[in-house]
Structure formats: structure tokens, C-alpha cells
Amino acid sequence: MNPAEIKTKLESEFPGIPIQIVGEGLLLGPEDLVRVARFLKESGEFKMNYLSSITAVDYLEHLESVYHLYSVDQRTGPVVLRVRVPRDNPRIPSLVHLFRSAEFQEREAYDMMGIRYEGHPDLRRIFMWEGFEGYPLRKDYLPENEDVLEWDDVEWLERHGVTVPAEYKQYAQDLKAAGKEARAERPKPGAEAV
């Protein structure tokens, strides 16, 4: 079943729904995602009862969540759904109450990309620890420079009775005075989005 056919079927089911074909998938608005997914899952024709994969992609202007749906009973698929949300306020309704398989994958996408899946029962970081700042898979994320000590480290070490060499201490102080963070340098992502 190609995307165009699915699109016409969905449009007849939900009149006036904005659907756009992007690549192999259908681009939906965040507000339509749950009802479309429920229809695909429960309608006798599609029976897309198996949500295989949820991926978040950073396209610089916006974040995108990609869903791959398959049917276990009919052995058809995939139906690819896409939802785009702005970078500064990424909110997408959660699919956990429809598909349990979304539980960890949405947490993963939240952890790595920072998309908030609203309605998720337990949206916490899954791989990084609580209190970690930033989203490592976003294209503008810079990891820390691990070969220099910062002022927090110096304070911590001295609190634990470790003598910090003077030059490290001086460097950390200078860094703090300049208001800088020790971050690794990374080439800028210059490539265009799909």
C-alpha cells in the first residue's frame, strides 16, 4: 500500500485533515497523530497493531518524530507517520496508551532530542542521568572538554581532600572569570535537511 492510497483513505475518514506526503511517509499535525494512529490500529482494513520504531530527527528548523507501523496479522506495512514540532517547544502527544512499545522509545527520544511526549506516564531520561543538561543528539550539542578542570571540579576535589595543582586551579579560575565553559570543539553541521 503506497502513501497516496493511505492518504486518500485517511482523508475520507477524517474530512479536512491536513496530510502531506513526505518521502515514504505521511506528515501529520501533532494534534491529529493520536486519532490517526488509533484509526490505523483499530480499523479492520489496516490493522496496524505493531508500532515498530519511533525515531526523532533534528532538522535544524524543526524536530521530527517518525513512526513506523506494521500489521502483525496481515503482515503489511510499513505505514510511516511523521510529526513536526518547533525546536523551542517540542510537544507531541504520546502513543503509549495505544502502543506499549512506545514507552521506552519515547523516553529515548526525549532523552536524546528533548521532545516532550505529552501523556507519557513516566517521561524521564532513560540513558543519561537525571540532572543532565542538554540533548546529546541535537545537532548543536557540544560535549564538554574533559581534559581541563573547571571551577566546580576544583571545589569538589578540595572538598574531598585532593590537592589540585596550581596551574589547573589557575586555569579553572580564569575560565570562571571569563564566564566560559570548557566545551569540545565540533565542526558545525552545514548540510541541508532532506
Partner: peptide, 22 residues
């Protein structure tokens, strides 16, 4: 040896200068 702690960017401290230095 003191046990490092989780910080907002990574571990605090980044290394223990008693044991290792860049």
C-alpha cells in the same frame, strides 16, 4: 578514592589529579 558525582554536563570532577593528569 573519592567517588565522582553526576553534574549537569558530565562527571564532577572530570579526573582526579592524584591519579591521572592530562
Amino acid at each position: 578514592f573519592p567517588i565522582p558525582e553526576f553534574g549537569p554536563k558530565g562527571l564532577i570532577p572530570k579526573f582526579n589529579p592524584d591519579v591521572w593528569r592530562p
